[in-house]
């Protein structure tokens, strides 16, 4: 029936299915939004891709076309390769950890804490999401301070020697991942809670009547029905993680900051090349690569989750 309706719709031209004034109204209403989107999104992205084919220095007036020269140089640039590796590790660990932890917290708040205090917990978990990344990064930089940091005080209570959390190359990236996960858990927890609220309670009741354990209810009812929200969270978290910049920038700033190579991520490298060394063409090539990576990953995630559905 549905298929027949679809076929019939296809046979009628689009223009005949709508009344002309309606069409005109739609077009007129969409023009400002499309125009804005063009100015804010499409043109800058297109211009970035275009600039990546030039030896574009911000100050020098001579900007010769070099084709794929910037891309060729990038794949020989150890700093970029380090940034690519660090970003991948950062994104993978932070996305997986954030989503798992936020889902667990959401499940706990939804299922086990059906009392008034759960609102307090929700607020507490959501609180880190409210302030900006920059301000919280400054606070965490102090928490990680090797001399006066709270973390060293805390681990000292358990007899662990103080560490230079941001200074030691093997710790620095993990320290920033920890901060990033802490900052984002509340956001994804709220989204998971929204998803959980939409699952009909009858399904849980039916599962309970069938003798399903708590784990089985989560495994066979909650997780499958939470898939659309999980997909959304996965895509958003991946994009955020690949675009991470503010915490890395703040935590590497100043004489007490972390050395930037162990925590170098693509956007930081891009920023340094573009706005510190003024090599806009080179930075644009990095931005283009990042765009490709994030787009491919998003497509892959969409496909994976949809194929399971």
């Amino acid at each position: 029936m549905n298929e027949t309706l679809q076929k019939a719709k296809r046979k009628v031209p689009l223009t005949k299915r709508f009344w002309w004034p309606q069409m005109l109204y739609c077009i007129v209403v969409l023009i400002p939004v499309t125009f804005l989107y063009l100015i804010i999104r499409i043109i800058p992205v297109a211009q970035t891709i275009w600039m990546s084919f030039y030896n574009w220095h911000l100050v020098k007036p001579d900007r010769p076309f070099i084709g794929l020269g910037n891309y060729a140089k990038l794949f020989k640039d150890q700093l970029f390769l380090d940034a690519l590796r660090n970003t991948t590790v950062f994104a993978f660990v932070s996305v997986v950890t954030t989503l798992i932890v936020s889902l667990i917290i959401a499940l706990m708040l939804e299922k086990t804490m059906r009392w008034k205090a759960d609102t307090i917990y929700k607020v507490l978990f959501f609180l880190p999401v409210v302030p900006t990344f920059v301000s919280v990064s400054v606070i965490w930089k102090w928490i990680y301070d090797p001399s006066y940091g709270f973390l060293n005080y805390l681990v000292g209570l358990f007899g662990i020697k103080p560490r230079g959390w941001l200074i030691e190359p093997e710790l620095a990236l993990w320290a920033i991942i920890l901060f990033f996960v802490w900052k984002n858990i509340g956001y994804y927890m709220i989204l998971f809670l929204v998803g959980l609220k939409n699952i009909p309670s009858e399904l849980y009741e039916a599962a309970s009547l069938d003798g399903a354990s708590s784990w089985q209810r989560i495994r066979h009812v909650t997780l499958p029905l939470l898939r659309p929200m999980t997909l959304f969270n996965l895509v958003m978290a991946t994009m955020m993680a690949f675009n991470v910049f503010a915490p890395v920038y703040v935590m590497t700033m100043g004489e007490q900051g972390a050395p930037s190579n162990p925590v170098r991520v693509i956007v930081f490298d891009m920023y340094e090349n573009g706005f510190r060394y003024l090599k806009m063409g080179y930075a644009s090539a990095e931005a283009t690569i990042l765009l490709v990576i994030v787009s491919l990953l998003t497509l892959l995630e969409l496909r994976l989750v949809r194929s399971e559905q």
Partner: peptide, 9 residues
């Protein structure tokens, strides 16, 4: 002695 910190310092 300046031992760490990002930038040129």
């Amino acid at each position: 002695l300046r031992l760490f910190g990002a930038g040129s310092g």
